[in-house]
């Protein structure tokens, strides 16, 4: 049995080493992506990575702009669809549903938050895509990606928004009750304006998730590299491009794909940092913890 002091020392060293390793993980991640993308950044250059006409990496055209635009369009579209629905669910749970039903809804949301994204993508492939195909071929399209991603971010978004709306100080709640205000009025005119910042932050976090999602998107968007021009036209996102091309890419092509990875890393990190400025971090964590526990 080592002496308590020695044990303490060892524990301290080990935990410091582990903390350093965790720090190194981010540095290593960024460093490796940078190292692998260096050839493309050097030989192709940022200007051509953005400005080349089209993405034909095997023939020296590295224009990533349509991919970036598609990623943005799918993710923003998904949020546009998800936000009203998440608000609706939060309103129903907070104000309209009887307690039993509210609890049931919560359980459902938690179940849905756990659905693996590949399963959601598969669901999109067998139901959403054929539905859209009936309207206008090819079905696999920007809209299909938006719908599937909306389903993906919805449960967490709803839980987060509910947390933000429920955070009304008890004094104001009491005052509203004394005035005989309807619950809808309280939510709409008291809670919602107050929660605006937190909801914005939640949206940013959800946007980060939607931007980074691969599996749910690659199965349903058709994967044609082109500017997102119509809802029912196919597009290819940055992440889908990685999933499709990394297995065989080599040389500058592979390197250009790592540039895309770097871009994703930067975008999600930036979104998270902005969101944490808005105070989302605590709330996001709070919701996660709560959803883990309740």
């Amino acid at each position: 049995m080592p002496s308590p002091r020695r044990l303490d020392r060892a524990l301290q060293l080990a935990s410091a080493a582990a903390a350093a390793a965790a720090l190194l993980l981010l540095l290593g991640l960024a460093a490796f992506l940078l190292r692998e993308s260096a050839p493309a950044l050097r030989e192709v250059g940022l200007v051509r990575l953005v400005g080349d006409r089209g993405w034909h990496p095997t023939r020296g055209a590295f224009g990533m702009a349509p991919l970036v635009a598609a990623s943005g369009a799918v993710a923003l579209g998904a949020l546009t669809l998800a936000l009203p629905l998440a608000l609706a669910v939060a309103f129903v749970r907070l104000a309209y549903a009887p307690p039993r039903l509210a609890a049931l809804l919560r359980a459902l949301l938690q179940l849905l938050a756990a659905v693996p994204s590949v399963v959601l993508g598969f669901f999109g492939l067998v139901t959403v895509v054929p539905l859209l195909l009936a309207i206008e071929p090819p079905g696999a399209s920007l809209l299909a990606g938006m719908v599937v991603l909306a389903l993906m971010v919805l449960p967490t978004l709803a839980l987060l928004i509910e947390g933000a709306l429920a955070g009304l100080p008890s004094g104001e709640r009491a005052a509203a009750a004394a005035l005989g205000l309807a619950r809808t009025t309280v939510l709409l005119h008291l809670a919602l304006p107050r929660a605006r910042g937190a909801i914005g932050a939640a949206l940013l976090v959800a946007l980060g998730r939607a931007l980074g999602e691969t599996m749910a998107v690659v199965l349903v968007t058709g994967n044609v590299v082109q500017w997102p021009s119509a809802l029912l036209a196919p597009v290819r996102t940055l992440t889908a491009n990685l999933a499709l091309e990394l297995p065989y890419a080599s040389g500058l092509h592979r390197s250009a794909l790592f540039v895309a990875g770097l871009l994703l890393l930067g975008a999600t990190a930036a979104l998270l940092l902005i969101a944490s400025r808005c105070g989302a971090r605590e709330r996001w964590r709070g919701a996660r913890e709560e959803s883990a526990r309740a």
Partner: peptide
């Protein structure tokens, strides 16, 4: 840093 790494898309980890 952990918060940032925790939000990195999984496909980026795949690349790494």
């Amino acid at each position: 840093v952990l918060d940032v790494v925790g939000s990195v898309p999984s496909i980026v980890f795949g690349l790494f």
